[in-house]
Design a protein around this nucleic acid. Structure first.
Lengths: 338, 338
DNA sequence: TTGTACGCGTTATCAC
DNA sequence: GTGATAACGCGTACAA
């Protein structure tokens, strides 16, 4: 029975012949310990295999060092890329990421947040689909910082990071028109996310401003398969579009594949396609998709910076802030001209 | 100054007119509380906004409920799919996932594990590239359960989950031969992961057993770009292969794209290709890749089950175990015949 | 069933 | 610079 697994600061202190406080100070950045004491403590800690108990530390400091990442569609190219950046930067900032997956049920965001609160997470970053109105309130009440990415909610308090979706959509109209396209279409999913809807509205508005109509179709979940279905619907119409803006690269890949392999339509000769996200697959030769790059690392660093530096004012609330980042157009071969 | 953010069990007890232990028992599954007390506690907790402090609970129980996911290449299709399954199952099991990204430096796995220990994680699941010999020891010493996925290390103690890579590779040789291919090739990265090397060795061995030589090439990181480069090298040789097994679907996609678009080689007519992983993109019409499915959800559930049910014996060590799962061949259009 | 008292491992405060 | 002591919020043995 080797029950005793973890070494405590007291044991290290005993072995080093110092007090428990000395041990604590040794492992607290910015505390003052004499070099000699420090050396002895570190030596004892090393031989005993001591590791600071972050649970106890968090309990004392009222600061766990945990940041909660609440995310749906984890396996999606865009999400996983964002996840990678966030975890990297969090680690560099000395924080640790707690990942909560909200894929299954839909009240699960609420459940997730509750979990985060139980672990006294210092902050939560939400890159999940559906909004819950009560979220911000729940977070604020728990003194938790909150970052909302790509959700243009009208929530007070947290930091909101969004892209210029509408402007981007406008650019696509211009590009399509330059390419000589006249029958514009927009392919969307039924997710109804703020950013997806912003792209749709921006595209339609810009086209209308030029006196052009847009046929809009929505279907299913925002993925490759939905893109195929959308193509099957939109390309069998009498008035077949000659240019389609897909709300997402995944939709665009599915759309393009269906157009080429099921309808033998040549892209971009007979049909121009644009996407959004600039996922890795968009650059693969089979797609060579013109799209907009989500500034993933900028988004992540804005979020982390805010978490690290923003100070709650004397009301205990943090200054609310909204950041809009630019999605840069990446020109590839799925639109004529360029 | 609304400094007091978190509600403690004591405050709930005061409001409900009971003792603090009654509150504790109410939130401890399997404790005995009278229905009336329970009701009053829950009501007080609700109105006050009480949430159990998991940090303090973990401190007491010597069981944090945290499971550490140590992973590299988070944004890779296969990894993110595994990540999705693991987080889902962990949450269902009442645990919470702590995500540690080991992409950057290389001693970072060690660093990550240390972080896990500081938070007193109950277990770590490693799906990261490079092995560190000292890992298992460090974990065991901390009484931490350890699961190694797709790393055929000779480490004692932990649970090891692997696939039948060699056998799968053998199947590919058979399929290639049936398709009439005679000049076999294997495309690999330089990662040198146990599973990648197992596929390579298995393929070469099976081919040799049939009296056929295999040209093997390795290059760069296990991704799409490396696949392209490999194609450029292998398809410009005088003895151009008529069948190539790529160690990974990403490599296969890159290889196929280069073959088609740069060399105008028709797949599968002039060149048969097989991959491994069955990432989502393998099923996309542009690739339609014959490959092996990683039984992602089976792998995840084996891991989680073991974490939940395996009991440390009276030495404090858990029974070590090695699980081999079957990678099922998914027939698609990149190999002739079928 | 309920309440009291103690301990978990740490840090902050305060004398020295 | 150092050491004693009091918290932090919770689980639980024990007595009632």
């Amino acid at each position: 029975m080797s029950e005793k697994v973890f070494v405590s600061a007291q044991e290290v202190a005993d072995r080093a012949g110092v007090s428990r406080s000395a041990v604590s100070r040794t492992f607290t950045p910015g505390a003052s310990v004499s070099p000699e004491t420090r050396r002895r403590v570190l030596e004892a800690a090393e031989t005993l295999g001591y590791h600071v108990n972050a649970l106890a530390r968090g309990l004392m400091r009222n600061e766990s060092g945990i940041v909660c990442l609440i995310v749906s569609d984890v396996a999606t190219p865009n999400r996983s890329a964002l996840l990678r950046e966030l975890t990297m930067l969090l680690q560099n900032a000395g924080k640790v990421a707690m990942l909560i997956n909200t894929d299954r049920s839909d009240g699960s965001v609420d459940q997730a947040l509750r979990q985060a609160i139980r672990y006294r997470a210092d902050a939560s970053i939400i890159l999940s689909g559906m909004p819950d109105k009560s979220i911000a309130q729940l977070c604020l009440r728990s003194g938790q910082r909150l970052v909302l990415i790509n959700r243009d909610d009208e929530q007070p308090g947290p930091l909101r990071i969004n892209l210029d979706d509408r402007e981007a959509a406008g650019q696509v109209v211009t590009a399509f028109v330059r390419a000589g396209c006249r029958k514009l279409a927009f392919a969307n999913s039924e997710a109804g996310t703020p950013s997806l809807m912003a792209r749709e509205r921006g595209f339609v508005a810009a086209a209308n401003a030029l006196g052009m109509a847009v046929s809009v179709e929505r279907h299913g979940w925002t993925g490759y398969d939905a893109g195929k279905v959308l193509a099957q619907r939109m390309l069998t119409r009498p008035q077949r579009p000659d240019a389609v803006f897909c709300a997402t690269d995944l939709l665009a890949c599915g759309f393009m594949d269906a157009a080429r392999h099921q309808f033998s339509i040549s892209v971009p000769d007979q049909l121009c396609i644009a996407g959004f996200d600039n996922i890795e697959q968009a650059s693969w030769s089979s797609y060579d998709l013109t799209t907009f790059a989500q500034p993933v690392s900028a988004m992540a660093s804005k979020a982390i910076d805010w978490l690290s530096h923003s100070q709650p004012d004397n009301d205990g609330a943090v200054h609310e802030q909204s950041i809009r980042l630019h999605a840069e157009l990446v020109w590839r071969g799925s639109i004529r001209g360029g």
